[in-house]
Amino acid sequence: MSVKRFLAEKADGILLSWVDQREMMARFELDCAAAEELILQGGYLPARYQRNQQMISTAQQLQLFQSKVAVVGCGGLGGYILEELARLGVGQIVAIDPDVFEEHNLNRQLLSTIELLGTSKADAAVKRIAEINPAVSVSAINAAFSLENGSELLDGAVLAIDAVDNIPTRLELAEICSQLNIPLVHGAIAGWYGQVMTVSPGDGSMQKLYANWSGGKGIEAGLGNPSFTPAVAASLQVAEACKVLLGQGRGLNKRMLSINLLDMQFDEIPL
């Protein structure tokens, strides 16, 4: 039996269940990613994505599956970003973070658990995503992003997402993305507050955003971060990423969304 015939027989409308996808993998000796690609290329949809429909067509789901996105930082923002990208169906993810989980991460970092204290954040991303969407290929990079390794770490990525915890790394990330000519979705948080914007290659908005930075941390040093602020900022970042990957909607380009959850005030700042 051909793959085409298998899909035609098993699909319910255009939907193919996980059980059938597993059977397809076994019968045709395919790994999960290869099976997923064939399903989408055949115009079918793995049933896990059925609630993506209406806003994401099957052709767009294939586009997401064939996209590689680098997530720089696997902590507060990064944990939610990785989860949402994998559930969205982005096919290739690079998870970059040099750190291991510490107890003070447990109040907000989605990937952190008591059991994983002392272990790699990037490795936790691989494990988590394998549990929720095994069609997604994740590579863990247990190293800090820098000007030296940046181009190599982002190789092949069509988009980078900023989930780092410090300003100098953000400026370096923006520089490398500009050199590689890829967009960057920025997010940063502190206490009740956060900000999100999308940087087009070479538009200089990250440099403009931190033009008055003279070294050191931002207000997060004094305010810390609760459970909900990273979730809000990360979700806005993934919405931006989805739009960038599909070329849809109006992005936060040349404008920053300033988030104040204490007063539920959202301001748009020109950049």
Binding site: G75, A163, D165, N166, A190, W213, G218, I219, E220
Partner: peptide, 8 residues
């Protein structure tokens, strides 16, 4: 006047 926000 906006503060620097840099956490992640």
């Amino acid at each position: 006047i906006f503060p620097l926000v840099g956490g992640g």
